[in-house]
């Protein structure tokens, strides 16, 4: 942790004269979202095809090099992309020494013990803006995000009496449910809504559970997409799904793709997609 912080600090402390880095290799999808939102196209990012399925907003511009798996990047390709800065997260810490041989590295955590992912997304946007010489854009993004969240909070105020139970399907019988320390969880907290899932979750804020655990009598059920067609079809004949209190009274929303480990753009989209009835 220490070393990364120092490194990022050293990068931030660069003399203002030096041109800010422009050839970015971005390991984490959440950081990809932020970088794109700041108006910069990275030279390399990972698993572009899956990005289209799971995130896709902001869309990935053409011409970005796919360096392969985020969890095991193709170092040769990264080297060929000749980045002048590599953006990563502590999750990929085991690769950090390798990245450092290639280019300066800046690591941004969205998940820290006891931390608030949404706040950290805001903080990361500001830090990235400074690092990339896009302070104005970063400030605008943060203001826009804050204003949007305020607006959504007003729009969603009428449903504030009911807690939200947020989950996404792994398969027909297993789900990930997002707790208070997840990005979704901190986002709805910012919107003034309550999270129905109060049981402990893991470091990234989710728990892996079976379907019947969603049987909260009062909650509004929010399923983050994508939901595979096979799962969708099966739900019709699934007695447990049909018996869920939220399903019985039709308090269910199935959202379009919304990646649980994204950043500000994901949080905003999630807030916009929450239904207010």
């Amino acid at each position: 942790m220490k070393r990364r912080t120092v490194l990022a600090a050293a990068l931030l402390a660069r003399p203002a004269l030096a041109a800010p880095p422009r050839r970015l290799a971005v390991i984490d999808w959440g950081l990809v979202e932020l970088v794109l939102s700041l108006g910069i196209t990275p030279v390399a990012a990972g698993e572009l095809q899956s990005y289209r399925t799971w995130v896709n907003d902001p869309p990935m511009p053409a011409g970005v090099l796919d360096f392969g798996l985020r969890g095991d990047p193709n170092m040769e390709l990264l080297w060929r992309a000749a980045p002048d800065l590599i953006l990563t997260t502590p999750q990929f810490a085991s690769f950090q020494p390798r990245f450092e041989r290639l280019a300066p590295v800046a690591s941004f955590a969205t998940y820290v013990p006891g931390g608030n992912p949404l706040d950290l997304c805001f903080a990361n946007a500001a830090a990235l803006g400074r690092l990339l010489g896009r302070e104005a854009e970063a400030a605008a993004l943060r203001d826009r995000a804050a204003a949007e969240l305020d607006a959504q909070a007003r729009r969603l105020a009428p449903i504030g009496d009911r807690p939200l139970l947020m989950a996404n399907f792994i398969d027909a019988r297993h789900l990930r449910v997002h707790g208070g320390n997840s990005l979704f969880g901190t986002t709805i907290a910012r919107l003034g809504l309550r999270n129905a899932w109060t049981e402990p979750t893991n470091f990234w804020g989710f728990g892996t559970v079976t379907l019947e655990r969603l049987a909260d009598p009062a909650a509004r059920l929010v399923i983050a997409g994508p939901v595979s067609p096979a799962v969708m079809e099966g739900l019709v004949r699934n007695p447990v799904w049909q018996a869920l209190p939220a399903v019985r009274v039709g308090r269910v929303a199935i959202l379009p793709p919304c990646w649980a480990f994204g950043s500000l753009p994901t949080a905003l989209r999630f807030a916009r997609m929450l239904p207010d009835v």
């Binding site: 799971w54 792994i170 019988r173 595979s228 699934n238 447990v240 799904w241």
Partner: peptide, 19 residues
């Protein structure tokens, strides 16, 4: 990755039922 997460769970054998 994400898409075959189900394969991972189920490779480990889960008896969870819904019906």
């Amino acid at each position: 990755g994400e898409y075959l997460l189900s394969l991972l769970i189920w490779g480990a054998g889960s008896l969870a039922q819904a019906g």
